[in-house]
Amino acid sequence: MVRTRYFFSETFTSLKRNFFMGFTAITTVAITLFIVGVFAVIVYDIQGITSSIKSQVELRVYLKDEISEELKEYIEQAIIGWKETESVEYVSKDMALERFKKQMEGSDILKEIEGNPLPASFDITLNNPEKIDQAELRFYDRDGNFIEGVDDVIYERKVVKPLFAITAIIGTISFLIIIALLLAAIVLIFNTIRLSIYARRKEIEVMKLVGATNWFVRIPFLFEGFFEGFAGSIISIILLYFICNFLLIKGERAIADIMRIKELAIVGSGNVMLYVYLGVLVLGGLIGILSSIIALRRYVKV
């Protein structure tokens, strides 16, 4: 009891004394963790979007009009047999025309079409979209020509490749920014603790002289660092709550409506935001304690 009261009163005396430094440290932690939280939401959403787009990636194999039934059957069986095939759908010439008409409804192009110029195709969905190159190669023979009966193979390479690259870049950049901000927060808390150790050097000297244990000397500073990290994380959670529920949520609703993606951080069914808040809280406390430990190791010796 005595000790707990002592530690709390020491901690708050020290926070009062170093008000400006403490305030700066808390603000930095708050901003840092806020940005960490926003990035977490964004990265989660981008991952949801890309994985949804990835699963929509398909390979379309156009067949020559004059292909025989046997050969068509043979190719279909072969495709089903590959390990990268998720599913395959045969689209006949008539179905292709129907689809085209639907897409172009109301356009003048339709009037100019005579007969059915569209080829039949196999639409292949892959279980791992990154294996798309490998799947494509199967339709070429050794000389680099298409195998018999195949007229062309297309997929949306132009969309898929840059998308992977952008995801990777955003991930890396946000990771670097977060690391830099975390370091800044640690340095600032470290500095406040260093200052309050300096402000209390006489007390520390007396404490050691009369036989206070090392832990007894250290705990108020650990409390102080923890408090600064923790207070910063609470502020950042409040900021995150408002930003997410009044601003980011609109973007997510739009994405959910247009792209039919369910795995989003805020509007999704999983409790992603709960984990983000919890993570921010834990991170705040850890930053605070870690900074104090570094300062104590450097400035308080037995």
């Binding site: 404490m207 036989g211 244990t213």
Partner: peptide, 11 residues
């Protein structure tokens, strides 16, 4: 009192 407080003596 500080000398006693910091070695955990009761009030």
């Amino acid at each position: 009192a500080f000398a006693l407080e910091v070695i955990g003596k009761p009030v």
